[in-house]
Design a protein around this nucleic acid. Structure first.
Lengths: 234, 234
DNA sequence: TGTATTTTTTTTGTCGACATAAATTCCACG
DNA sequence: CGTGGAATTTATGTCGACAAAAAAAATACA
């Protein structure tokens, strides 16, 4: 069992309780440690994290506001399901956010931003080199989050982060299929995007982000189709 | 004083407490009944709504997740400020959401949708006819929310609703200046948008939404500039 | 044996109380 | 009279307990 979730009581500072529960639950949901659709028992959680139900409930309210859990009135709250029937709305939105944030990053990035973005890209490249699929998923998210931060639009940023998280969950589902030669292609595409941003070439950044998004969407679609065939074969 | 906020205790059903507090606070924040930056006292609120602090805190957590209040750790939560310095990010985002939702509504609207949209438009037209600025603000929001619902993309919809609410707060600030001849123009533009959606003319819908957004942005900018001149003149 | 109804159990929503961190007041000292 | 620090007050974060609503189990009846 994980360490952070079973920490001794009274080791935490006052005021960090809700944040702590939020982080634990969020990670477990995005890592699929908590299965989509599974109910969350407040009392059980309270015992596991050795705290009262109050901070746990507040964390759940926050997660509900972000769409990571669904609260049924007077009944248990459940981990949000993955809506395979409407994945196209997800693909549509994340593609647009890839484009908009990359575009605005080219327009508005400030001195320190590129340093951060390049650092994230280095981490992603390392994950690819190590063939560590889980690290790829995580570092890829951080790379694009860094670009979104440089775009300096909190509205786009918050939607994009939400979409990236949802994508993390989706990729987790199929991460075993994530070790063909595509990731190397992503490294190159990332490099091109960085260059376009650095040169403040807005149209090029937009175009690259759009192609990048299409690649990722196509890959996810592929993985789902492959998985679907396997399920039928069984 | 308002009626709904001073209702007798025990008249409400169990389970609706948080929702009730959320609605009250949300309305008061968006109506500027609670000034941006002003602190929210949990105890005072608890007494006013005659309930315990627990449901009030949960409502505050939800409002914080939506950006309507800001929570300072171990200190009071305050009504979110209006960030005049970064309004361009707001205008940018809401313009894009106007376009995307109208575009997708033209693409994906289903039989019942147009009925709802036309009903909202009728309400907006009535508010314009009555020269009721506050009703204009409210009905205009509902009109575009109906289009967003017809676009059938929950990600765009939630961001757009958030932006429309923020816009409602902005317009409230200057609603006295909201009685020139522009609103009549909006009625016509709305009609054109409905027609384009009904004809499933995606490009036309996009173009109209884009122009409509530019109009609104220009008007808000105007009102701010006018207000700014007045403040200087004083 | 299967179904409807009542009883029991479980779990959520709300409450009042206490502990702790800021903010404020008060006081000592220069 | 002003400044620094201790004491007080205020408000937040957390807790355990109770009441009401669902869910589950047990019982009655056809």
């Amino acid at each position: 069992m994980s360490d952070i979730a079973t920490r001794k009581p009274k080791e935490r500072k006052r005021g960090s309780g809700v944040q702590f529960v939020y982080n634990v639950l969020r990670d477990e949901i995005l890592d699929l440690a908590l299965a989509p659709g599974s109910p969350i028992d407040e009392i059980q959680l309270a015992e596991r994290l050795s705290m009262s139900r109050t901070p746990i409930r507040e964390a759940l309210v926050r997660l509900a506001a972000e769409g990571l859990v669904t609260t049924l009135p007077n009944r248990s709250t459940v981990v949000a399901n993955i809506d395979f029937l409407n994945l196209h709305t997800f693909f549509d939105a994340i593609t647009l956010m890839y484009r908009v944030t990359t575009r605005l990053a080219a327009l508005h990035h400030q001195p320190g931003d590129l340093v951060v973005i390049r650092a994230r890209q280095a981490e992603f490249a390392k994950a690819v080199e190590d063939q560590d699929a889980l690290a790829m998923i995580a570092t890829n998210r951080e790379f694009h989050a860094a670009i979104a931060a440089a775009a300096r639009n909190p509205y786009y940023e918050s939607l994009f982060l939400r979409l990236l998280d949802e994508g993390r969950r989706l990729l987790r589902l199929y991460y075993s299929a994530f070790n063909d030669r595509l990731p190397q292609q992503y490294v190159i595409e990332h490099e091109d995007m960085i260059t376009a941003i650095a040169e403040r070439d807005v149209e090029k950044a937009d175009k690259l982000a759009s192609e990048h998004a299409d690649q990722i969407v196509a890959q996810i679609r592929n993985m789902i189709a492959r998985d679907h065939r396997q399920q039928i074969a069984l």
